Structure formats: C-alpha cells, structure tokens
Simulated assay, not measured.
Amino acid sequence: MRVSIVGAGLGGLALAQGLRGAGIEAAVFERDPSIAARFQGYRLVLNPAGFQSVRDCLPPRWHPLLDEIVMDASAEQLVLDPQLNQIGRLGGGRTGIVVDRQVLRHLLLTGLDVHTDAALTGYDVKADGMVRARFARRDPVTADLLVGADGVASAVRGVLAPRTTPVDTGVRFVIGRTPLTGEFADLSKAYGSKITGDGVSLLLGAMRFRTPPKQAAERLAPDVSLPDIGDYVRWAMILPPNGSLEDATAQDAVLSRMRGWHPQLHALIEQADPDNTTLLSIRVVKPGERWAPGPVTLLGDAIHATSPTGGNGANTALRDADLLRRHLIEADQGRRNLLSAVGDYERQMFAYGTEAVRSSLEQLPAFAPEAQLS
C-alpha cells in the first residue's frame, strides 16, 4: 500500500510515522518552501488520549525520549485582574501533558520522506481506484490513498468537500513566547488562568522541559535531532472581535492594551522574541456532509478545525492519525478492503470531530464574548 499525505503538521506526520512503523509506504507533501519556513513552536496541552495517540504512532525506541521532553501540568483556571488579583474562576481545574509543538514536530519528522514546496493543485481518481495527486512545482504522484492533513485552508478538502468551508469567528489573537527566567516566578498562579481587563484577555502557559530537548535526544535517541531551546512562557492576548493591529507590531499592539497592568506582565511581553510573535485569527471548520466513499480522506484541521479555547485541536488531529493508522494497517494486512477501512475511520472521525468543534465554540465566549458563532 502507498499513502500520500498532504500537510506536514502534527497529524499528518504522526500518521506517516505510524504507517512507516508498520511497513506501509507513506510520503508527505508540504506546500511550505521548507520545513522551517514558519515558526511553529508554542506549547500544547495534550490529554491522556492525545498523548497516547502520538505515542502509539512513534517507534517504541523513542518513547523514553518522548517522556523526557514533556511535562505534567495542572492549572486552577482562575480569572485574574490586571494586577493579578483573583476575581473568579473559569471552571474546574485542568490537567494534561504539556509538549512544545516545534520539538514534537521535529521528533515526528525524523526519518520521514517529506517533500517541501509541494502545493497541491488537484487530484484525479483513476479507473483502477488509485488516486493521482497533482502539484504546482513537482511531478504528479499516484497512491492507493490520498490524505488531506493540510489545515484550515485544505486544498484537498477544496476538491473533496467544496461546500465545507472555514467559518471566521471574528476573533483575533496575538501569540508569543518569552524565556522563562526567575524574574517571572511571581506569575506562576497566572499560568493556565485568564487575565482580563480593558476589553482583552491575556492567557499564560509555562513550558518547562524535564530535560532540554537537544540534550535529551543526544542521550536517549542519537538518531533524532531536536531544537536547542529552553523553558519559556507562551502567552496569547485575545483581542476584541475583528480586532486589528493597525500600523503597530504585534508586540506593540499587546503592550498598548496593557497600560496600568502589573509590571511583570509588561516585562513578559517586552522580553518576548519579536520574530515569534504574530497575529492570528480564530477560524473553525465544521464537518458537513459526508463525501462519496473513495481513496481520498481528510484529517485534523482540514475537516474539524476547532477554536483554541477548547484545547482539543491537536488532540483530535492526533486521534485521527492513530485511528486511521490502525484501520490502514488492517487493510494492508488483508483483514478488510481499503474503502471499508477508510469509511469506518470517517464515520468515527466525523462524530468526535463534530463534537470537538462544538465544544470549542461553546467555550469561546468565556474569552471573547462578542465572537460570531452563527
């Protein structure tokens, strides 16, 4: 069996690793000109199922390394004012396994056949049931299955399910990261909580590695090369719906909305890496009608992009990868045919993916009351 995966995000790479481990040929095609073309290094909170999914997709020899580069975390999920006084609670406390996206992505990239500068322009299903993917700047590729793991603006979804389109909630947020030093020790109660004031919300989360990733790889898995990064604070400011930066940089736009806030909060933003600070929009993709069965399917944000306030985007994509991996292994071993395997995956994925989007949107008004959810 040959599988073509479009998109080198966490879900697509996890699927490729899982198939590779089972002896199934899997190639990844990424539209970016290089793997490092965009910074993708913010912390993620994985639930136990999401963490187990990525673990199951990786070779067992890398499990000790994976365990060493994550951290257990819990947060009270408080609501704080700009002076860090508690004024409420978001709900029950949250626990999880924290991982850095950039580090995890480098681990998932190891040993894979990844083709960059490969923007999909379309595909054709051939008479023999194979699928031929076409790209802007490379020769077509034929496979038994084409998987669209290419995000909210999925080119694969544009052909497979053109009536399923992204919905813009109108919410914008600035995200960045700042080295975690002793200067910010007093901010610990704010990690995992919401700081609210002046019509905006600021969310903080700490990333503390059990062992620095580069050192951990050198000791536990010499065949893996991981980024040389240290502990940091990931912060995100949710702006009013349809907020813009006007002529300001992302960093300056955040600081301009924090006049009179706690000095350590100011320092946290001032000391952020400007190259890793950016404005993003919150768009969702709600699974719509099922498409006709065939040798093309979707995974992750390409079919169920969630609001980050739900904390379930990466978890759901990794669940997709592991579920599809297991079904394709059954097909490769002759225990079922390919279309049946893909169909069963899609039925399950549509059900929990729809719920993941619904749940994330339900939680968005707690951070952005004027979000456009219709």
Results as ranks from 00 to 15, higher is better:
42 Y>L: 02
24 I>V: 15
23 G>V: 09
27 A>C: 09
22 A>F: 10
47 N>Q: 15
39 F>K: 05
24 I>H: 11
43 R>W: 00
32 D>E: 15
22 A>T: 03
32 D>V: 05
20 R>V: 00
23 G>A: 11
32 D>T: 05
25 E>F: 12
36 A>I: 03
42 Y>M: 02
19 L>N: 13
32 D>F: 07
41 G>T: 00
30 E>R: 05
46 L>C: 02
32 D>Y: 11
31 R>C: 02
39 F>V: 01
42 Y>C: 00
31 R>K: 12
21 G>S: 13
22 A>R: 13
47 N>F: 15
37 A>L: 03
20 R>D: 06
24 I>L: 14
24 I>D: 05
18 G>A: 06
25 E>Q: 14
31 R>A: 10
17 Q>H: 10
30 E>Q: 11
43 R>I: 06
29 F>C: 00
19 L>F: 10
39 F>T: 01
27 A>D: 08
42 Y>V: 00
28 V>C: 02
36 A>V: 10
43 R>A: 08
17 Q>M: 12
42 Y>N: 03
46 L>T: 03
20 R>A: 14
45 V>G: 03
27 A>S: 15
21 G>T: 04
26 A>P: 12
31 R>T: 02
21 G>L: 09
28 V>S: 04
16 A>F: 06
36 A>Q: 14
31 R>M: 08
39 F>W: 15
38 R>C: 04
44 L>A: 01
44 L>H: 14
28 V>D: 02
39 F>S: 02
36 A>S: 15
25 E>L: 07
38 R>Y: 12
37 A>M: 09
24 I>C: 10
35 I>G: 07
33 P>V: 14
20 R>L: 09
25 E>S: 14
46 L>N: 09
20 R>H: 13
27 A>R: 15
47 N>A: 05
35 I>W: 07
22 A>N: 00
40 Q>S: 07
45 V>F: 00
26 A>L: 10
46 L>H: 03
34 S>G: 13
40 Q>G: 08
30 E>D: 11
38 R>I: 00
45 V>P: 00
36 A>N: 15
29 F>A: 03
25 E>T: 11
29 F>G: 01
19 L>R: 10
41 G>N: 09
46 L>E: 04
20 R>Y: 06
38 R>P: 00
27 A>N: 06
27 A>L: 04
20 R>E: 11
34 S>I: 01
36 A>W: 13
35 I>L: 15
45 V>T: 06
39 F>Y: 15
43 R>L: 08
32 D>P: 01
28 V>I: 09
26 A>Y: 12
38 R>W: 09
28 V>L: 14
32 D>S: 10
35 I>E: 08
45 V>L: 09
32 D>R: 13
39 F>G: 01
38 R>Q: 11
21 G>Y: 08
22 A>W: 10
43 R>Y: 03
43 R>K: 07
36 A>Y: 14
33 P>A: 12
25 E>M: 06
21 G>F: 03
19 L>Y: 06
19 L>V: 04
19 L>S: 05
19 L>W: 14
46 L>R: 06
